[in-house]
Structures are given as C-alpha cells and as structure tokens.
Design a protein around this nucleic acid. Structure first.
Lengths: 256, 256
DNA sequence: ACAAAAGTGTTACGACTACACCCATGT
DNA sequence: ACATGGGTGTAGTCGTAACACTTTTGT
C-alpha cells in the first residue's frame, strides 16, 4: 500500500486549545495565558499547543491540561489520578479558517475542561502569565466577544469565539447532565452546587426548589455522610457525585 | 514575524468526512460510497476528502456535499441555492487517532448533513458506487458498530464510530430544535414530519398528540396554504418550516 | 435574640399521556 | 359503506414555581 502523495494535499499544523472553566467567587472564570511572542504578543489567549506525532487528540488535550493547571482528567479506570484533582474534559469543536493564524495553516481542535476552584494557576512555572479571568470580562456582557468602554483587550486569534462556544456548551450541558458536579470539590453541599448553577447561568435559583430537585433526581447525588458549616447557618449535608451522567428530568434554566 | 519552524510540529493531513442522513421508506439512511483503493478497498465508507489549502472547514464540507449529492447548503443570505435543494450542515466532531489511517497521520473533521429524500445518489458520475444504506444495516441494531450473523461488512476506518456519533447527534438534536424539518421537502404535512421523528428515533408516536404539539409550538411550522392527499385519507394541511430553530418546550422522546 | 443558610409542606398551574370522538377523502 | 389518515376534546397524572414555615448553627 503506497503512502499518500505529499503533493496531493496541503500540509497542516494541528493544535489543541483549551477552554478551562471554573467557578470562583460566584463568577464563571476561564483560564487564560499571556502570549510571549508574535502574533498577538502580550495579549491573553487560551492555553494550547501542538499535537504530537504519536498522540491522540484527547491525549494532547489532557497533556496540556496537566501542564497548565496540574489537573488530571478523571478516568474511572485509572488507579489514582496522581497530579492534582480530577476534571472533566471533552472535545468542543474544531476551528480551521485559512487565515486564523497569519503564520501558516493551523487547525485547532478545541476542548472544554471543567474544574473545581483551584488555588492558583501555574503556567509552566512562569508566574503571573496565567490567570483565571471572569468570562464576562473576557467576552463582554453579551458574550459576543465585543468590547466596549475600555474593557480588557480581546483575546488572541479566534479565541473569543472558541471561549464563547465553550461557555455555551457548558451552560447547556449542565441542564441535562450531572456535569455541574465537575465544578465542585469531591464533597460538596447542595448550596454549593446551586451556586455553581447560578454562576454558570447567571441567574438566581430558588434554594428550596433546587434542593428538592437535585436530591430527588435519581443518581445525581449520593450522601457522603458528614455535614459542614462552611457557609454559615445551619450545617448542610455533604454529597458526592452519583453515578448518573444524564439527568432525567433535566434541570430547567429559567427563561429570559 | 517569522513563520513556524517546520521541525517544531509534525505534518498532518486534514480531511472532512460527511455523515449525510435522510429518511427513506420509514428508515433512517446514511450515504456511503464504495472505496476504490487501498486501504479498505471495496468496502463502504463515508464520503469525504482533503481540505484544500485556502478553504474553510465548513466550506470543504459543503463542497464535498455538493460533489456527492448535488445538495446545496441552505444559506439564508444566498440569492438562490442553485444546485439541488437545501440541506442542513453542521460540524460534528474531529477524529485523529494516530493509527486511524495506516498511510499517514490524518485528522478528519466530521460533519453532519441532513437532507430530504433524494431520487438517487450520484458519486461523481460513478454509478452504483454510492448508495443510501439504512443506518441499522451499517451499525447493527445496537448501533455499536458491531456486526452479527452475516450482516454487511463494517465500514472502513473509524467510520462506524463517526456514523454512530452523527446518528446520536441527530436523534438528540431533533428533540430541542426544528432540525427534523431538514429531512422534509420544502412543503410537508404534519404526518410526514411525524414519520421523520418515528424513523429517526425508531419509535411510534401518537398522531393526535404529535399534531397538537408541533402546531402549538410557536415558530416551528407555518401554514403553506394548500392541502395534499399524498398519503390517502383526509387531505392534510401543508406547512413550511417556521423561523424558530430552538423548540420550547422540546419534543419528548418516549422512554425505553 | 438575631441573622443566615438548610430543609419541608402545600397549593396552583402548565404540559404531557391516553383515548374517545369527529372530519374528509379514495375505493 | 368502509378504510385511511387528519384533526379536536377531555380527564388523569406528573413536574414545576412560588412561597409559608420549621430547623440548626454562629455571633
């Protein structure tokens, strides 16, 4: 079997870019890194890098995630995810406009990662070149990537669009899946889970109905045994994420 | 700004593969083409091809779709979609396992297309090398890509997986969007739309409740004026797809 | 005592399911 | 007359929204 004729197709570079989301101080935040070189030098961008020659796409995304955050993809089959705690990682979409990188033709396979609140990002040891930024600051209130009245500069390349798509994916996916627990530590309270929904959707939810809903959805939460009083007030039961991945009935996002 | 150092990244070939779905004779069918060369010579595969040097990913997918089916992507801005009728086209996912093509490293950006029932596929003029095959025959009843008791051969490469993902996307997306109309001709009856849902989901739906639901969902259907008696029985009103893309409340797929 | 957060009970409403029933055409 | 598919009405059920109310802590 002959190999491809190299003249039959144009050469591409393939990268992975990461939309890493977390919830900090009641706000949905994304991990951004400062670019050290042209183009877009000094501007904020999504973390990412080249896919290696013998590497799967998901493997490249998981490697970048570890390099940037110390997070380890949660794999039920693995004995113990050593570096850092677990996180959710899934493919988001692929971006390959011919002019998206002025240097050459680059196709980027974007991935979406959801992580619990972490102490501080580490950008390969390089301090203050990586940070958690509120999504609203990066995209503007409308989420369209536009910027008004002296906000921060727009993200490099087409990363505003990628981030916007990732946020929209997260917002819709926590409706019908148990993914919101990926934003929580291993043990969490119903109130903490509710604040995740409120931060990601940007709405206020009724604590009473929310409690009934999540504790009544089979497989969503399992009691972890203890209680905590992290938030003040009456101690709350601690829960762990249950085995269910699809929620039935789904959580309902309030209307406009 | 210097160009990339070519030794800094491995070279990739980037292709688009198409999952083209339609509903024929009450069955969900996919377009497959017969491979004329190694590897997998003589086996059925999804249509696809290389992305050209100056071409967007969606543009490459649209070009392949026209080449294989004569279908034209429906673009509201275009003056008139000349070749063939309209169709829905969206990016599905990207597949890039290092060994998915034995010849070299190929990353394939799969796209999902939904089309109304067409007279016959045309594979670049090459007759009987392209056909509409029931998805159940291609994937087996479980949809896992496995084959039992002398069914047709499995699809080439990882195309069974890609097709399976595309079918699952279509099945879930017609729940909460108006995409099912993409399987219908420009004017259609409520019964024809119901048979689309029944074929894609593989279930039987109550005609009375279905009628009330779709006609009562704002923006889903708009009356086209006439009636037809294509199916026998009382003449049915003709409808066109309305402006709404997201259905609220969604269509509910019956439980197992 | 008071504030704050966690939970429980109750009522009203909207949407779905199932099925009885009528309508309009072809044979 | 009858079969076939189109369309409407109605009762039971399930899930949610809204909100009153009790519980358990910290200050």
């Amino acid at each position: 079997m002959p190999p491809y004729d190299p003249s039959a197709f144009p050469p591409f570079a393939v990268t992975v870019d990461l939309v890493v989301l977390t919830v900090r101080r009641h706000a949905l935040c994304a991990l951004v890194v400062k670019r050290g070189e042209q183009p877009f030098q000094g501007r904020w961008a999504l973390p990412g890098g080249f896919v290696r020659a013998d590497e799967d796409l998901d493997g490249a995304a998981a490697r970048e995630l570890v390099e940037e955050t110390g997070l380890c993809v949660h794999d039920p089959a693995a004995p113990a995810p050593v570096p850092g705690t677990g996180a959710h990682l899934e493919q988001l979409a692929t971006y390959g406009a011919p002019d998206r990188d002025p240097r050459m033709r680059v196709v980027s396979v974007a991935h979406l990662a959801l992580a619990p609140d972490l102490p501080a990002p580490r950008a390969g040891g390089d301090a203050n070149s990586a940070r958690w930024a509120p999504v609203e600051d990066l995209l503007g209130p409308e989420g369209a990537g536009a910027h008004e009245d002296g906000q921060a500069e727009p993200l490099a390349f087409d990363h505003a669009r990628i981030l916007s798509d990732g946020v929209e994916r997260a917002r819709s996916k926590i409706e019908y899946s148990s993914l919101a627990t990926a934003f929580c530590p291993p043990e969490f309270t119903v109130g903490e889970l509710r604040r995740v929904y409120e931060a990601v959707w940007g709405v206020a939810l009724d604590p009473r109905n929310f409690h009934r809903k999540v504790t009544g959805t089979p497989g969503f939460l399992v009691p972890a045994g203890g209680t905590t009083t992290r938030q003040g007030g009456r101690p709350a039961q601690l829960f762990r994420a249950g085995g269910a991945t699809l929620l039935n009935p789904p959580m309902l996002r309030p209307e406009v």
